Computed example of a mutant assay.
Amino acid sequence: MRPVPGLTLHAYDAVLDAPGTHRGMPSPTVTLVLPLGAPLDVAWEGEPASRVHQWSTVSGMHTRPALIRHDGWQSGVQLALSPSACRAVLGVPAAAVAGALVTLPDLLARAPWLADLPERLAASRTPAERVAVVRTGLARAVAQDHAATPAALGEALRLLGAGARVAAAAEAVGYSRRRLSTLVRAETGVDPQTYARLARLDRARSAVVDRVRSGATAPRFAEVAAVTGYADQAHLARDWRALVGRPPSEWLREEFPMLQAGPVPAG
């Protein structure tokens, strides 16, 4: 299988003390979750009608948390797909699933490789076997040569994801700001400012998780803000509350057991 830029794949097993709810955070990726043992039970916060209880779930870019209910144990495989990887793997731009929770049958017309994936995963015994099953499927997906994200737009998204201002990203690739906004929305389902905001939040979440897994029980959010592109800790806290529904300290208290248990569905 040739590499798929912008794709992150991992198998997860998280054993917790009791049933609960994991808060999946917004991010600049499309998330494909393939659970084992029990279907994934997920809904957008505040929207019970959005609830999905299935063996496969795809969540598009979103600006609200996904609430993932569990019985104290979660196991499966997760793929995080950048806009370019979404085209290569699912055969559609990320905008096609923006703000949505969909299941694999909704995507089979463009991604037939997904049809038997849950069954083949159910027969796997170890995390390594799970990853190998998904990689075999991905090889079939990328062999289809779906239309790629235009190179200039891909570079603009890279710059926005790294913290560049919208005007600077547009100038770097030779677009007007209006043209860039139109193209980013058509590709991702969100405007450039929102895409950059999601990327910055994702960098902050990763920084917090890294600190927790290295042994820190109380990460310094001022330090996280400084290294991930926020003006200050207050700015980080406002953004976190707006997009996650909790200030970062409260989110960390709720998620701390899950973070210690290892990678879990991101939402």
Rank of each mutant, 00 (worst) to 15 (best):
P257F: 06
T217Y: 09
A128R: 05
P219F: 05
P248H: 07
V173A: 02
F221N: 03
A218T: 13
R213I: 04
A169N: 03
P127M: 03
V184Q: 12
A242Q: 09
P257G: 13
G154E: 09
A148P: 00
P219Q: 08
H235G: 07
D116E: 15
A207M: 03
L159S: 10
A222F: 04
A207N: 07
A216Y: 04
R253E: 15
R197E: 15
V131D: 01
A172W: 07
L236C: 04
G154H: 00
A169P: 03
V212E: 01
R197K: 07
A237R: 11
R197A: 12
V227Y: 11
F256Q: 09
R165E: 14
L236H: 03
A147Q: 13
S176M: 01
L243S: 05
R185A: 12
R158P: 00
L252A: 14
V227D: 12
D239E: 14
S249L: 08
V190K: 01
A172Q: 04
T217N: 05
A167C: 03
S181P: 00
A162C: 09
V166G: 03
P248M: 11
V209C: 04
Y195S: 02
G137N: 10
A169F: 05
R203V: 05
D232W: 05
A128G: 06
A199D: 02
A225P: 07
A199H: 02
L201C: 06
R179Y: 13
D232L: 10
L157M: 14
R220K: 10
L243A: 13
A207H: 03
A170D: 11
A234N: 08
R238A: 11
Y230T: 02
E254Q: 12
R165D: 13
R197V: 05
A234I: 14
Y175D: 14
A170H: 15
T194N: 02
A168G: 07
A115N: 03
P248W: 12
E119K: 05
